Amino acid sequence: MYAAGWSSAVITTSSPETTSRCTPASCRSSSDCSKTLQHHGFIDAYARCSPGEQAYSWIGRTNDGYRYDYFHVGAALSDRIASCAYLHETREQRLTDHAAVTLTLDVAAVERIDTGDPVADGLF
């Protein structure tokens, strides 16, 4: 089960060779990345919760809005989406120039997977 939250404002294109593959780390636009994730079975959580509603997570000086911030979930989690919303207070209070996006999933308690300790394992 996977969930991915991302903002296209931090996605960069490293070279023309990688752009042609359009992985989420090399897409030219949020639309490209969203399409790539959807092609791989990920669901746009906000669109699932608010079908047909146009949301904006960033608003420019000319009052034009864009949706740059997303949560996508794997198909196994799609029926567990409880809510997905934009909180504009972060932008309105000038904490950031983007609205925060929240995702709430209804998940039962799951067995914890021991991932180890990267510091103790000498990775850092």
Rank of each mutant, 00 (worst) to 15 (best):
M1I: 12
A3S: 14
A9E: 10
V10R: 14
T12P: 01
P16E: 03
E17V: 09
E17G: 00
T18P: 03
R21H: 09
R21L: 12
C22F: 06
C22L: 09
T23W: 09
P24H: 02
P24E: 00
S26P: 00
C27S: 10
S30A: 15
S30V: 12
S31H: 13
C33P: 01
S34R: 05
T36Y: 06
L37G: 01
Q38S: 13
H39Q: 14
I43Y: 02
R48W: 03
R48Y: 07
C49I: 02
S50A: 11
G52W: 06
E53S: 08
E53I: 12
Q54Y: 07
S57G: 04
R61A: 12
T62L: 10
R67A: 02
Y68T: 02
Y68N: 07
D69Y: 05
Y70I: 03
F71L: 05
H72Y: 12
V73L: 00
L77S: 01
L77M: 07
R80A: 04
I81S: 05
A85I: 08
Y86R: 06
L87G: 13
H88S: 14
E89S: 15
E89R: 14
T90N: 09
L95R: 15
T96R: 09
T96W: 06
D97P: 08
H98M: 09
H98G: 07
A99K: 02
V101G: 01
V101I: 15
T104F: 09
D106N: 13
D106H: 10
D106Q: 06
V107E: 05
A108E: 14
A109W: 02
A109N: 07
E111N: 09
R112M: 03
R112T: 12
I113H: 05
I113S: 03
P118A: 05
V119P: 04
D121T: 08
G122F: 10
L123P: 05
L123F: 15
F124E: 13
F124M: 11
F124I: 13
